[in-house]
């Protein structure tokens, strides 16, 4: 147990130290002469935020759109897959998992080779992100929607004469509220940091945050690039916090 605790602490360090070092670089006046050798500054941080802010907003909007699309088409699809014992449901399940097996960069080449005309508007980017996140939405929603308890409640409500719409609003949605929120937060977080599928399909005139970072890594000073990275990580924290809280709620309910 004690060795396990020490190992866990070591692994926490492995995850956290690169971020801390990035923060040190971002607050050093000139890192190449050594950390903090010229003193501490927040100039890089404020310049980094200025440069990254418009793309963070864009990534936020794309993420919200992707999450909404996931809930709408993914939610309906998950409901059908959960309630259908026939082979088409299994087939659709396999198809939805295709993007897990095919690398993002290959899907990116496939999408740009098929729908190049959708690229400038950003529609192809959103569609690509939905393709990438849909398997996670199905994985979060199908087991919850297939739960015996829900099926039973639904049958009882039906036998008492509740309409399908009423059952959806008063039985199904409340039952899977936590899973729905979890699916939305996961889709948002994955879309927010997506780089592979985005590579050929992002709208060139309107880069998302990961692309602004990629460009900064190639062209900007290491201090400024670090500051931008820190802002990106900070901007991810709210949704990751929400995900952690939701996971706690799920665990509570199942125990």
């Amino acid at each position: 147990m004690r060795a396990g605790a020490a190992w866990t602490r070591l692994m926490v360090a492995v995850v956290v130290v690169p971020m801390l070092v990035t923060l040190v670089v971002a607050t050093s006046v000139s890192f190449s002469t050594g950390p903090f050798s010229g003193g501490v500054t927040f100039d890089w941080m404020s310049l980094g935020l200025e440069l990254l802010a418009p793309t963070l907003l864009r990534s936020f909007l794309v993420g919200v759109g992707v999450a909404a699309a996931n809930l709408l088409i993914g939610g309906l699809l998950a409901w059908w897959v959960a309630r259908t014992a026939a082979w088409p449901a299994r087939l659709v399940g396999y198809l939805a998992n295709l993007p897990l097996a095919v690398p993002g960069i290959a899907i990116s080449v496939a999408l740009i080779g098929t729908y190049a005309q959708l690229r400038p508007s950003g529609l192809l980017l959103v569609a690509g992100h939905v393709v990438f996140t849909l398997p996670f939405t199905l994985a979060a929603l199908v087991p919850v929607l297939a739960a015996d308890g829900l099926v039973e409640c639904d049958q009882v409500a039906r036998s008492l004469g509740a309409s399908p719409l009423r059952r959806l609003v008063t039985v199904t949605l409340p039952w899977c509220r936590v899973a729905v929120l979890q699916a939305a937060a996961t889709a948002y977080a994955l879309s927010y940091g997506e780089f592979n599928i985005s590579f050929f399909v992002n709208a060139p005139a309107a880069p998302t945050a990961p692309f602004a970072l990629f460009e900064a890594y190639a062209t900007r000073r290491i201090e400024l690039a670090s500051a931008m990275s820190i802002w990106f990580i900070v901007s991810l924290l709210p949704v990751l916090g929400a995900l952690a809280a939701l996971r706690g709620r799920l665990a509570e309910r199942s125990s």
Binding site: L72, I73, G74, L76, L77, W79, W80, V81, R83, T84, A85, P88, A89, V92, L95, A96, L98, P99, V102, I107, A110, L111, G113, T114, Y115, A127, G128, V130, V131, L134, A146, D148, V151, D154, Q155, R158, P164
Partner: peptide, 30 residues
Amino acid sequence: AAVSTPRWAWLAAVPGAAFLLAFAVYPIGV
């Protein structure tokens, strides 16, 4: 478990299945 599934249930799968065909299966075919 599918006893309570209405006959029109497959309609719910149409948007998702159409999307997957258009943006996953078809592009990989291309």
